[in-house]
Every structure is written in C-alpha cells, then in structure tokens.
Amino acid sequence: MPAGLTDGVEQATMTDAAADEVEPTRGAIMVVRSLTKRFGGLVANRNVDFDIPQRSIVSLIGPNGAGKTTFFNQLTGMLQPTEGEIEFNGVSIVGLGPHQIVELGVGRTFQNIRLFSDMTAMANVMVGRHSRMKSQWYEAILHLPRVREEEEATRQRARELLDLVGLARRYEDESAKNLPYGDQRRLEIARALASDPKLLLLDEPTAGMNPGETGRMTEFIGQLRRDLGISILLIEHDMKVVMGVSDRITVLDYGEKIAEGLPEEIRTNPQVIEAYLGKQAHA
C-alpha cells in the first residue's frame, strides 16, 4: 500500500480539472492525501492534500480555528485521522503511536508551550533524546559502562543543542518553568531537535512574541534548515510572519485548503484575503 499510494493520488489529482499543476511528490518527505478529521459534527480538516518537499520550509497558515493544530496532531500521531493517508519517507504512519513517529524522524513543538516544566532545561532536552538512546532498565541497574557513556554523550549533545538554540549556559540547571518566555520556546525547539528529526513541525513558534522576538525567531528557523538540512513545517495564523521564510505556503480555512503556492501568490490571492478579512470582521 504505501508504495502505490502516491501514484494513485497523483492520478486522482490529475483528473481534478481545477488543479493546474501537480507538485511532484518525488523527493517529498511527507505526503498527506485527502486527510479528514471530524470531531462529532465538526469537520476540523476536510480532504486536505499536502506535500512537504525535502529540505524545504513550508507554512500552513489560516485564521484561528482553521484546523491547523488538528492537522499537526494527526501528523504526529496524537490524533488519528478520520479518513485519509499520511506517508513519511514513503511509509504510512497512520495508526502509529506518537513515539513511533518520533522514532521515524518527526519532531514537534506546541502552540501553547508544553515543556516538562519542573524538570531542568538540560533534562528536558535529554528527554527529547530518549528515542535515540538504547540503554535498558536492567542495564541501568547493572551500571554497565555503556550506560554511563551514553548518558554522557546525551548530556554533551543536549549542551550542543542548547547552544544551538541560543539558550544561556546558566539556564542549564534551571527549572524550565523559570525560564523567560522566549527561552521556553527555544528550549522546546531544542527538545524537539534532540530526537534528530528529519522533519520539524513548529506550531506557532512566535505566538506571544513581540515583533523583535518574532523577527529573530523566523530568522532562526531559516538558519535551522540551512545548518541542519532538515525540513520544517511551520504553522502560523499571522500571515506576515511566514512570508519571508517560507518556500511554499498553504492556507487552511474552516478545515479546507483554500490556496497553496509561493508566498507572493498567497499574498495577493483574493480568497485568502477574504478569509482573513472575513474573520477579522467577525472578531
């Protein structure tokens, strides 16, 4: 099934007269086809098709309540789709648990920061590395040398990651909850990176930040892709934030994909403007 899936979908989209050009899925790290999620009567995602090319930054934008986080939660196994298919590196991940998807190489952050708030910054990142560590409980009891080596290597790697995201050394042994807001966001990214993801999902990483911090964060996201060579899926409700950093942008409204394309195309797309202005008029 997994191998044949994309071909089938490609054909299906071909027959769709409205689709002007189908993005080649070869080289896509993640492929989502007709994903639908219902919560009772509410359709949070309706027939969403979505590709994330290798080493790209793609953004998913849309007004609040459009279904972006729900979409994310299905990609990470925290919610199971009602219908549809999700492939990561050619393997179907529907039905897998969140930890299995992490093992395959998908890391994420949360819209409302969800750190292990009473653990230290260091411990948070080390937990993030859990899926790449091997020592078992009985080995820990026996204090095998390799357990200590692995622990040391993990600490080392965590330190590098804390440096990478720019978290000051003095915060290393501080409880996560005592960190300044912006640093908590950075720590969450470090924790996600600790599992060596090939795809990083960031859910509104600039939420609650002032314009200055927002600018630094978006710049940092671009840098991440350059330095680590990973793919990034970025959720934002504020369209302006993603314009500069994204290769492609997809717009969700009421759970449906209403537009997809290059940043300039999205900026001028009347349907998108309508969706945003309409929402604002209601608010």
């Binding site: 990470t76 196994g77 653990m119 859990h130 078992q136």
Partner: peptide
C-alpha cells in the same frame, strides 16, 4: 537513568512525553 527521566516526563505530561518519543 534514561528510564527515570522518562518516568519523570510521563508524570509531568503524558501526552507530551509520548510526543517526545517515550513509549
């Protein structure tokens, strides 16, 4: 150990622990 850390994370937030790679 790694095990204790995983338990700790699980105690703090089970969903996030799972999303961080803990079975």
């Amino acid at each position: 150990s790694r095990v204790g850390r995983a338990w700790n994370a699980m105690r703090e937030d089970e969903d996030v622990a799972a999303a961080t790679g803990i079975n």
